[in-house]
Structures are given as C-alpha cells and as structure tokens.
Design a protein around this nucleic acid. Structure first.
Length: 633
DNA sequence: GTAGGGTTAG
C-alpha cells in the first residue's frame, strides 16, 4: 500500500525526470503550446510510465486532493505520478492532477503535458487550464485554449470559463478579443452573473476604457464590494483620481464598507492628487479598522501616499512602525526619498536593504539611479548600473538607460550622454531623446539640442513639451526669431502648450490656479500679496530670471508674465490664508521654472515658511532660503 | 473552481 509518507520521500525522481532532460525542459517552458487533436490522442500511450503496480484511481485522486490542499512541492506530485504510472488519461484523474498543478502555481507547461494526454477533457479541465494560464505570467494560451474548445470540442463554455478568460484578456490588453468575448457573453446570456460582470468591469478598466466600465457599473442592478473596488481602482489606475474619490464617497453613501482593496486604490488616488489632508483621514480610517500592520499592501500604499505628498517624515514613520516590510515597502521609500531630493539617504537605505538580505527589483534600481542622477553622483550611478546585472541578474530596461542619460546629461557630460545613446543595446525611444533635450536646455547646448529635436520630430511629432524645451533653448541664447519660428510651427501644426496649473489644499478643499488666474474671489488679496512679495524680494537682491518665457516680449512684460505663474499665485494665496509658519504645499502639473525656484527659496527665508512643491517630475523642499534639490534638477 | 490591489526615467 502506498502511504502519504512515501509520497514525500521520493522527490528526486521528478528532479531527475524534469531538470535532467533538456528536451522536456524546453517543451515545458515554451510559451506557445499546440493543443492535441483527436489523432494525437489516439496515437499516444495510455499512461506516462508504469514501473509499479496499478493504483486505484480513487486513491490517486484523494492523494492529489491532499497534495493540492496542503501545497507540497510540485515535484512530489510528479514523482508520485511517474513512479506509479498514474493513468492520467482518465478525465477525472487528469482533472485533479491539473487542478493540483494550478493550485500550486506550478509551471503551466507541466499542466499542458497532462492536459494533452487526457481523453475527452471536460469543462472543468478546460476551465482549470484557462484559470492556470490566466494567473500565470504568460496568459496568451488561455485565449488559444478557449478558441480551441469552441472550435474542436463538444464542450461548451460555462459560467466559470468567462471570469478567467476575461482576466487573461485584461492582462493581455487584448481589446479586440475582449470585445468579441463580451459579445459572446451577451449572446449566451452570461452577462447577468455578478462574477462575469465584475470581470468585464476589470477588463474595460485594464483597457483604459474606464468610461465604459463606469457606465456598465451604473447599469448593474446589484453592486457588491468587488464591483465598487474594481471600478474605483479602474479610475485610480487610469489617471482619474478625482473620479475615484467621488466613487469612494458614493460608496459610503450607499452603505458599502470599504476593505483593504478599496483603501489601497483610495490612498493611491490621494497620492496622485497630492491630497495630503484627505490621505491623513484615510490613514486614520486604516488605523481604526485595523488594516495597518495586517495588510501589507495598505501599508505600502500609505507609505507611497506620504512620499508622493512630499511628507517624507511621515513616510519614514510608517516604514519604521509597521511590523511587516516587503521589498516593495523598501522600494517605495527609496523612490520617495529620491524624488524628494534626498538622494544620499536613498542610497543609504538601499545599502540597508542589501544588508537585510533582500533582493532589489528593477524598480528599486530605477529609484537608486534616479537618486544618483538628481544628486550629481555620476560614478555611483555607473557603479549601481553595473551591479544590476552582475549582482542581481536584472537586465536593464529602457527606463534604466533613461536614468543613465539623465545622469550624464544633468552633470553636463553632453558628449558622453550622446555616445551612450549611440552605444546602448536598446533602440532609443522618444523619452530617451527628450531626456537629452532636457539636458541640452539646462546646459545651453544648442547644436546638440537642434539635432536631438530633429530625432524627436521623427519619433513623436506634435509633443508640446519638445517645442517648449526647444524654444527655451533659443530664448537662452536670445535667438528670438527662432523662438518665433517654433511658436509659428506650434500654431501651424495645432500643437498647444499644456497650460500650467497649481493645486493647493486649504481646509477640506483643493484650490486650482492657472497662470494669471483672477477667477478666485480672493484673487485681489493674492495679487496684493504678490506685489508685497516682489518688493520684499528685491530688497534681498532678487532679479527675475526671464529666459523661460516663451516669447520675444519686452523684459518688463516678461517679468509680469513670470510673476503670475500659477505656483506664485498659489503661494500668495496660501500666505494670505494660513497662519504664520504653516508649511505650504503646492502641486504643479509642469516643471517649476527657474524664476519660481529662486523666488520660492527667497520666500522661504523672508516669510519663514517651509514650502513643498511637487512638480511633474520631483519635489522641491524650500526652507531657510535653500532647496532640497540643491539647485540641481 | 468563478471577479478586484501598491512601487517606475522626462
């Protein structure tokens, strides 16, 4: 008789069978599988190997069920099936074997091998296979299997097939196929099932069609917590944090209690908006319901929220206080420190991560390289870039090369940066060239700038940021006719400069200011404050930096244009409306210009205020007349 | 057996 003990004492067989056989390894690891035809089924043997006496199917099944539930290692199951000649051609036996493999998240190649030997696979077998692929790293075969099932077998898809198939399609962002499957779901009358509906919501969310998902959601007669979470997350992940927060509020009105999933989406929406006050309230809620310390994802989202709101002190506090930390927690704090201008601390934290024996991910390295490039640590940057592959086997992606170009470009090593692009093993994309163009603007390299710009025109014509960068570059050299040329080209090609705006949080509200904005009821007071600031700053020796104004206008006019930049109005507004020494936080959609940067440094000194500005790329912490970026940004 | 989550260069 076979005992359970026996099962666990023969692991080496599978090792030998699987890892020692290159052809099998290749077969199992191949991403595309061919599904067996009936001719295949007729020609292959009825069992894998049969060195030992036959064991009753019922016994095998109960053992496999035990395996799947107690999650032992896959090799033990396989050793068992090989050793005892498990007759997996039996559909019942095969289905349990496949289920055990999928439940263990084992390589799908192995499940495919079993699947191809089963006589007349039933719907459970197909569904388990589809599920396994949908949850694996390569979900493509799930859709192939579904098509195969529809075309070549008598098995009909049921209510359990669609949620997993839709999950696979969502992962693949296969829009066309997704819509086809949706129409099949409608035709076959599965759309009334809540599992299918939620999977469809997720599908459209992943496609970036949050509008469709939302519409579908509104039409749903019964909406459970998962449906709310799916559509809220859809908005949060597609750059629509406001809508996500509105839905979060509506959810409360309908009396649906949020869970960890909801809070993660909600916190990330707050982070994107820089809504620190709202985020703090969410923090209190997370504490109240006991999610903190029990939900790693919620902890990480909270950490990220504080880092993204420029409140690095709170981020560190969360990091130090939680009982469980994953590499994501470390990465979030490293990236947070890097974007807030604390590059050295970010690198120290990275060293600590290594000392803890944790394995950094490719995103950790983006943070590390970002820290190096924003602090001018060229040698360190190259050092870490080398370590990536040597020490951790992480193949650098285009993002990492972007950081390296930025590292060289910011440090003024323009020639080296250009050569680096020429020699890199990946094809440079628009982002890479744009990074170099940005560096040209910082260092006034007009010749290279024009060349890079021509490359960008081919790769991504009509990107408004490139026109602005080029015109700033011409303006630096006072080449006004060229500035005009860029401007006319923008008009001709219908390219519009993204209007700059700044957000500030006061009380429970978020206020938005545009350039030269006078729509706010308190704008008179704000402008009066601006005039006061201007006169005070002149006493401090302030001279406006006007090179960034996109026009050949009189210097005096330029000064006016500068003094009405949205972030300056926002600061003035906050100076009027908050008590002395209250920190001021501003979120800006574009980069802070040189002039605003100088002004904020001075304001922080003259008015004794801490000013935190989050622009589209990073944070600036102003205090006592200096900035955390060290003027290197 | 069924659906949903966080971190990424400019």
């Amino acid at each position: 008789m076979l005992s359970k003990q026996f099962l666990f004492t023969k692991p080496s067989l599978f090792f030998f069978f699987f890892f020692a056989n290159p052809s099998l390894r290749r077969r199992f690891s191949s991403s595309r599988h061919r599904y067996p035809t009936n001719a295949d089924r007729r020609s292959r043997p009825t069992t894998i190997v049969s060195p030992t006496p036959y064991i009753p199917i019922a016994k095998c099944i109960s053992l496999l069920q035990f395996c799947a539930s107690s999650k032992p290692k896959l090799m033990q199951i396989h050793a068992f099936s090989i050793r005892h000649g498990v007759p997996i051609t039996d559909p019942d036996m095969g289905k349990h074997l496949i289920f055990a493999i999928v439940a263990l998240s084992a390589p799908m190649g192995y499940a495919h091998n079993v699947f191809s030997q089963i006589d007349n696979p039933n719907i459970f077998t197909f569904n388990t296979m589809i599920r396994g692929y949908a949850e694996s790293e390569n979900p493509r075969p799930a859709t192939e299997l579904y098509r195969h099932m529809r075309a070549f077998s008598s098995v009909k898809a049921d209510t359990h097939s669609y949620p997993f198939l839709l999950k696979a399609l969502a992962k693949l962002t296969a829009v066309w196929e997704g819509e086809m499957v949706h129409s099949v779901v409608l035709r076959d009358g599965f759309e009334s099932l809540v599992f299918v509906q939620n999977a469809l919501l997720h599908l459209y969310g992943c496609f970036g069609c949050v509008e469709s998902a939302h519409k579908m959601f509104e039409l749903m007669p019964q909406r459970d917590l998962v449906a709310w979470n799916t559509v809220i997350n859809g908005f949060a992940l597609n750059g629509r944090p406001n809508e996500a927060l509105v839905l979060f509020r509506d959810m409360g009105f309908e009396g649906v209690e949020p869970d960890g999933f909801t809070m993660v989406s909600m916190l990330s929406a707050c982070g994107e908006l820089g809504a620190l006050a709202l985020g703090r309230r969410a923090h209190v809620y997370v504490l109240k319901v006991g999610l903190l310390n029990s939900n790693l994802h919620a902890n990480n989202a909270l950490l990220d929220l504080y880092a993204k709101c420029g409140s690095i002190r709170d981020a560190k506090k969360v990091f130090n206080e939680v009982s469980e930390r994953s590499v994501v927690s470390w990465t979030s704090l490293i990236v947070g420190l890097a974007i807030n201008g604390f590059g050295k601390e970010a690198l120290e934290l990275f060293k600590e991560l290594e000392n803890e024996g944790l394995v950094p991910t490719e995103i950790t390295f983006v943070g590390v390289l970002y820290a190096c490039s924003h602090c001018g640590m060229v040698n360190e940057g190259f050092n870490y870039f080398g370590q990536m592959e040597e020490k951790y086997g992480i193949v650098p992606r285009i993002e990492h090369y972007g950081c390296m170009i930025d590292l060289l470009g910011r440090a003024g090593l323009m020639k080296e940066a250009y050569e680096y692009i020429q020699n890199m093993p990946l094809k440079p994309n628009a982002v890479i060239w744009r990074t170099l163009l940005g560096a040209c603007t910082i260092h006034g390299d007009l010749v290279l700038g024009e060349f890079v710009r021509s490359r960008l025109q081919q790769l991504e014509p009509g990107h408004s940021g490139d026109y602005v960068l080029l015109s700033n570059l011409y303006a630096l050299e006072s080449r006004w006719s060229d500035v005009q040329k860029v401007r006319r080209a923008m008009l001709r090609q219908g390219v519009r400069k993204t209007p700059g705006y700044s957000l500030v949080e006061l009380g429970n509200r978020v206020f938005e200011f545009m350039m030269a904005d006078r729509s706010h009821p308190q704008s008179e007071e704000a402008y009066a404050k601006l005039a006061e600031i201007a006169s005070l700053l002149r006493l401090e020796g302030y001279v406006p930096r006007t090179a960034n104004v996109l026009a050949d206008i009189e210097e005096e006019e330029k000064e006016t244009a500068l003094s009405y930049h949205s972030e300056k109005i926002a600061v003035a507004f906050m100076l009027v409306n908050t008590a002395p020494r209250t920190p001021i936080r501003i979120l800006k959609n574009l980069r802070v210009c040189v002039d605003c940067h100088v002004v904020f440094k001075l304001i922080s000194k003259v008015y004794g205020r801490e000013i935190v500005v989050r622009d589209c790329t990073r944070f600036h912490h102003f205090g006592n007349g200096s900035c955390s970026c060290g003027d290197y940004w």
